[in-house]
Simulated scan of single mutants.
Amino acid sequence: MSFKIILIYVLKSLGIIIGIIVLYAVLGFLLPFIEVSAKDDNEKKEIPIYIYTNGVHTDIVMPVKNELQDWSAKIPFSNTTSKNTDYNYVGIGWGDKGFYLDTPTWADLKFSTAVKAAFWLSESAMHTSFYKTMTEASDCKKIMISKTQYQNLVKFVDAKFDKDQNGNYILVPTNAVYSDNDAFYDAKGRYSFLDTCNTWANNALKSAGQKAALWTPTDYGIFIHYK
């Protein structure tokens, strides 16, 4: 095979790759603006939840315990460094295990981590964080939902946790926690550039009948609907 033919194949391959990247960027920018409307179940909206982002990952924040769900029974306070028991809220997010453990901020992102995360090459994890209070801001929005909507949300979130033979969440033994109030657990599914941590959070909102983007790989695509 001549050098010219090889060069043509290389250029075509690069063209395809660049085309995919451009298409992804365009869709990643445009599709989040298409809103999936909230579904009103005509029940009293009495349970507060929050969407919270650290600039990379979006979490769904819920009451630690109410009459419908006790998250502390599944996500023990004792699994955090602080081991405090006076937390009132728990934030839960799904994502790539390597991305979560090695990339608390964009500044920590490594090329190898990004490649593995983008192309289904590593495992996933649930990140859980406890909070005593929640304060609304540009990075934290409060949503009031009904009991039925909350039950649907709990079912959606719980289904993503990997479980042992006794149905318990599987703690990831690591020192790479973000603070003294969080912990990581094994999760189901594979992260990719099509199914990101923010895509999961967006789908969680859909499961609870709340406003969401048609599809989004970023936290921005979620929060534009809650300004």
Rank of each mutant, 00 (worst) to 15 (best):
P63K: 02
Y24S: 11
T85R: 14
A107W: 07
M134P: 07
V56T: 15
I8H: 09
I21R: 03
L23P: 06
G15Y: 06
Y9N: 11
M1Y: 11
T103N: 12
A213L: 00
Y50K: 08
A176D: 13
I49S: 01
N54Q: 15
K163D: 04
K141H: 06
D162L: 10
A118H: 10
A107V: 08
I60G: 13
I51M: 12
F193K: 06
I49C: 00
N152K: 10
K12D: 09
F33I: 08
G95H: 03
L31Q: 07
L121K: 12
Y191T: 05
L214M: 06
K211F: 04
S129D: 09
N175L: 02
T103F: 08
W200L: 00
K39S: 14
Q151S: 12
K160F: 04
L214G: 03
Q151T: 08
Y226K: 09
T81G: 12
G167L: 01
N166I: 01
D139K: 08
I17H: 05
F130S: 13
I75N: 12
N181I: 06
I224G: 14
I6T: 11
T113C: 07
K163E: 09
K4Q: 00
D162Y: 03
P104N: 08
L153E: 03
S13R: 08
F111P: 07
D158T: 00
E46N: 15
L68A: 11
R190M: 07
K97P: 06
K39A: 14
K160L: 02
L11A: 15
P63H: 05
Y220Q: 14
D41A: 04
K12N: 14
A137F: 03
S82P: 14
E67H: 15
Y89M: 04
T128Q: 08
H127V: 03
V10E: 07
K160G: 01
A107I: 08
K39T: 14
K227F: 15
I49N: 02
E123Q: 14
I170A: 10
V64T: 15
A25G: 08
A204C: 08
E136M: 04
I17T: 11
T218H: 11
V56E: 15
D40L: 12
A208F: 00
K12T: 10
N42M: 13
A201W: 12
V64F: 15
N54F: 13
Q151I: 03
E67S: 15
G98V: 02
M62Y: 09
I143E: 01
F29N: 10
F111K: 09
F77D: 13
H127P: 10
N42I: 04
L27E: 07
A208G: 15
N198R: 03
D41C: 05
C140N: 13
F193G: 11
V22W: 04
K65E: 15
K142A: 05
K132L: 09
S192E: 02
I92Y: 07
W71P: 07
K160S: 11
H57E: 02
W71K: 11
I145Y: 09
S72N: 13
K65Y: 13
G93I: 02
G189K: 00
Y191G: 07
G209H: 04
D186C: 05
Y220N: 14
I18S: 14
W215Q: 03
F193D: 03
